[in-house]
Design a binder for these strands. Structure first.
Lengths: 186, 186
DNA sequence: TCGTGACACGAGCGATCGCTCGCATACCAT
DNA sequence: ATGGTATGCGAGCGATCGCTCGTGTCACGA
């Protein structure tokens, strides 16, 4: 039954949008009574939160899997494959990505997002610190910049569908990451 | 009176947040009657829209001014000063920036934001096309990546206040931009 | 001085919201 | 067969929303 509610809430969010996602509508789509929602969830916020959590966890798992399996490869390969994997993961449910990033006020799930981002940032910082040689810059600083850059660009690429070929985009973003890590030319 | 309403709406958005910003609350803070709102605006959405528009226009003006006055300088200088100017412009009203980026659902002012971003992207693409030499990549592609990168990183820097010194951040972001434009090393 | 029109007022309308609670039902141990 | 319990139901509560409209006020031209 919990599954049924989550499924219905997911569909309502996709089809009707967050602003029109009322508890009664979720219940009707799930084929149950409004009252039954509250036997399994504390309220509307908890329902939406659970849907977002499921999406977020699924996304995190995909990305983490792709990232950790390639850690041993050359830097270029790690960067390229990570970008490609992230792109693929985001494309898996682009509609939900749009709901989360464009309809839900960020403040509603800020904590979850920040935690995830900090976790990834920490992971990348650790990876960078273990790599020799990079430029003389704090790994935390470089990781902070790069994680947010890759996240933002891949998300916008999926949602805005710019007229940039997919392989060009992946290659350019990879280059952006690697170029920033190389020693300065001056 | 229009000014008074906009001012009140601005304050309510900052203090109470978007979710709690009702028309009655805006009217009360403006010291006028709810009915009077509708002699000057079509509805709540129009009021919020006008507040966001004012903020957006002000921001665009600051950035455009800083960017166009430095167009003649060396590439390094243009990049560095543009980043610094954008950072300063965003810091001017950081609270409103937080409201716009974290409380308002992006979909509500998506059109305005996309238009502004596309305009800046076009400007940067034109600038890049006029510069010799850069890597063999479409100026539109490079501009697309760089504009979104700089925007996202400066916004997150202002709102998340990471433990990165300001001059280090500006320098690193500038380096990120320049490194991506330099010829590949291979 | 007086008629008039523009403006501001604010109680309250209709709609919608998240949510509750008394009731019906179905299942199971006794 | 029967009593107890857990569970789903759905009408409707109270609150809040954006918004309206009948009313009062006042500045101003005739």
């Amino acid at each position: 039954m919990v599954e049924r509610i989550l499924e219905a809430a997911h569909e309502v969010l996709l089809v009707e949008g967050h602003d029109a996602a009322s508890t009664n509508r979720i219940a009707r789509r799930a084929g149950i009574s409004p009252g039954s929602l509250y036997q399994y969830f504390d309220g509307k916020e908890a329902i939406v939160d659970a849907v977002v959590a499921r999406y977020s966890d699924d996304l995190a798992a995909r990305v983490a899997a792709a990232f950790t399996t390639n850690l041993g490869a050359r830097g270029e390969t790690v960067a390229h494959d990570s970008v490609a994997a992230l792109l693929a993961a985001l494309e898996a449910d682009a509609e939900m990505l749009r709901v989360v990033t464009e309809q839900l006020p960020l403040a509603h799930h800020r904590e979850r997002l920040v935690a995830l981002r900090d976790q990834v940032t920490q992971l990348v910082a650790t990876y960078l610190a273990a790599q020799r040689p990079t430029r003389a810059v704090e790994p935390e600083t470089a990781a902070w910049l790069l994680v947010r850059t890759v996240e933002q660009l891949t998300v916008r690429y999926v949602l805005d569908a710019p007229s940039i070929a997919r392989e060009v985009f992946v290659s350019e973003l990879t280059h952006l990451v690697l170029a920033h890590l190389e020693p300065r030319r001056t």
